[in-house]
Amino acid sequence: MNKPLLTIGVTGLNAIDSPGPGVAVIRGLREATSFDCRIIGLSYESLEPGIYMHDIVEKTYQIPYPSAGMEVLMSRLKYIHEQEHLDVIIPNFDAELYSFIKLSDVLKNMGIHTFLPTMEQFEERHKVNLNAFGKKYNIHVPRSKSVYSVNEVQQLEKDYDWPLVVKGKYYDAMLAYNFDQVKSAFNKISAKWGLPIIIQEFIHGTEYNVTGLGDGSGNTIAAVPMRKQYITDKGKAWGGISIADKEILALTDHFLHSTKWYGGFELELMKDKNGRYYLLEINPRMPAWIYLAVGVGQNIPEALTRLAMGWSTDAFTSYEVGKMFIRYAWDMIVDLKEFEQISTHGEL
């Protein structure tokens, strides 16, 4: 039987110490059994390792940063589409999702499919809105409050126990054991990421993650829970193991069912000493460890691509428990000519 050939654009080729998911997503796509694919890399910088992995990426084009605006991004994508005739784009960075979600209709009219959360889903899962999210969907979340001045924290003291987690709007989190530490964390983080600062209750416990895929109608197409076994100093998993946990799977089903989530996602969970799960964060895309899901029998990149194409897709019902992923670093030897090519022409 002839398998269809899809041309798929993938971002997040920065397989570095704090990696983007692109390369792992591509490995899943390459192993897809229901279609063949040509992979077009979409990179922001000249040194993203995926650009130089010619055995898995056919060709890479540089695209402008989201901060340059959608108009500029769109004209670049039009150019790339003229050359490559893309069927699907899988964006993998949080920062670019806003633009791709907004552009998804335009892309669709050009024949480029995406499978992304709606703008409403994207916004309401935002860190700043986590409390409201928990209330709306009846999911335990750590209590948190957005504050605009250090003094507001003093009023929280009576409702919260030490330590507190002080979080930035986009990135960064610090643990504070007293008011002085809150103050210093507040100043440091707000200088970098602006206001508000999120003050969050600290949940003692063990961290779990689950990645999966929602079809937009409330069904779970895939879900694989994992426990991190080795964490880098940047807090990234460098090794992890697939686990069987009915509660996590039930929580994932509930999340997908109640939000009618579209697309890939990762939930960051904390299990406290009473065995209760708290939802800490929702990443609206596949995580960098997505290849573990592929390896245990749920090829999420493949299923997501099928959904994007509008093809019928069966839900995965099982996965292998107790499989591990162990990440490793690998030095490629690259000719300067290649770096020159991507740097001067924006294509390689």
């Binding site: 300067l336 770096f339 020159e340 740097s343 001067t344 022409h345």
Partner: peptide
Amino acid sequence: VSDNGFVFNPGSGESFTV
């Protein structure tokens, strides 16, 4: 210096474009 304006300094390992 390459024809398309890529400049490489082998002494420092830095590259430039003109």
